[in-house]
Design a protein around this nucleic acid. Structure first.
Lengths: 242, 242
DNA sequence: AAAATAGTGTCTTTCAGACAGTATACA
DNA sequence: TGTATACTGTCTGAAAGACACTATTTT
């Protein structure tokens, strides 16, 4: 290793002479399903770790950016387009994959309910609720899904990051259709945080923020007083960086 | 690219057959110097971008983790040990380095004043104050240092992340010696945020947090009433994830 | 009218900002 | 005693939690 530290970026050192790690992107696909924060996972059919559940991922090509690789995996492996995608964290433990050295850049992808259902119908992925600490993926039958590699740590970090940012960022809206009620917005916050919130305080906070635009329209299909529909509008700027 | 998306992580696909990006770590070394948030930079002596200023960095070896690579660069290139190191973000634009495809995982390194001075004395790095938006590196002569590659974007992100986390995390203490006064702690916050803070409110907040332990000792070398020295103690847990 | 949820008014508590005051060191 | 900074008491205003109340729709 000592050789590698010599002026690697400063001189005309040739890294081709050394073995390089492979680089992948992995996607943590999150959505709200039945009032719970849930993740989309793929079952591994091949070794290593066949039968375990994994984040959809793929190698980063030599001529594509990290963001482009994440968007490609979303499109080709999950069959979705246009979800909110943001980089989460990079994982590079030497033994995180037993076959070879792989460094992965994990991405957070936030899906609307309809996108979750579409991905499930396409049959590529399964949905699992995220519960506990560290976050476990709980299947429909309430049994935890065994996860491959270090993917439980990645899921846990994704959920914790989302929890940390939900209150001051516009991430919550990535889970919602263009028009939504304040109740639906609160449901998203509550699902992510895993705790109930005070209704008047929540409404005040959201409306005072100035991001929401009332449409004058109301939801239908309600067997009670319908709520007003809002859109995310105009001058929003996150109050803090991540 | 289509080939690469095929079951890359699921099958027994061989990534060795494809060209791989190189992977480096780059260190954003930050410290407080003369009341200003400042960064340590190295002057590039060789092309590409000779004469520009860059973050210290190095290739990630095949058998070392990302964190280990960052610690090695800190030790071998900067001559420091034991600074606070945390991963910041990964940069992977295809053309970020004109010579070859390099993906870099940027790390944030926070230094105490004595560490900044030691690194400068060792002669490997120069100090530059971070000002403006995007963050510019301002040298001793008030002239901005030209930065190499995408390192201005990395510096800006580092500063913004630090600003976002300083209030609810324990990052501020990484800039301080084991024993410090509340005034020194406030100076750190003010330097990072670039704005003055209310003294009574700051004291209340810090003390109510329960992280600080009064030592009963007082600073010396003051030509006025000496302040009490505190240490970072006991049960601290960040109020939020990043 | 009953049921159910939308939406609001208001009291209380908490906490930050402001500012003036007291305390304690050295010169 | 003067000066400089540490440290605190207290007022005010902004915002969150709690809770009860009114409003409006479907059945």
């Amino acid at each position: 290793m000592a050789d590698i530290s010599d002026d690697a970026l400063l001189g005309d050192y040739d890294p081709a002479a050394y073995a390089r790690p492979s680089v992948t992107v992995d996607l943590v696909l999150l959505g709200i399903r039945r009032g719970r924060l849930s993740a989309l996972l793929m079952r591994r059919e091949q070794p290593p770790q066949a039968g375990r559940w994994a984040l959809p991922g793929g190698f980063v090509a030599i001529d594509e950016s990290l963001d482009a690789a994440a968007a490609r995996v979303l499109r080709d492996k999950v069959g979705l387009d246009g979800a909110h995608l943001e980089q989460l964290y990079s994982f590079g433990a030497v033994d995180r994959n037993p076959r070879m050295r792989i460094i992965t850049i994990a991405y957070l992808a936030l899906l609307r309910e309809e996108q979750v259902e579409a991905a499930v119908r396409a049959g590529q992925v399964a949905v699992a609720a995220l519960e506990g600490d560290p976050a476990a993926a709980i299947g429909e039958d309430r049994a935890p899904l065994p996860l491959a590699f270090d993917h439980q740590a990645i899921l846990t970090l994704a959920r914790d990051r989302l929890r940390g940012k939900i209150d001051y960022s516009d991430l919550a809206f990535a889970f919602l259709p263009p028009r939504f009620t304040l109740r639906a917005l609160q449901d998203v916050h509550e699902a992510v945080l895993g705790t109930p919130l005070n209704k008047p305080a929540f409404r005040r906070r959201m409306l005072d923020r100035g991001w929401l635009v009332a449409t004058g329209l109301r939801e239908d299909e309600a067997s009670h007083r319908p709520a007003e529909l809002f859109t995310l509008g105009g001058a929003r700027r996150p109050a803090r960086s991540q």
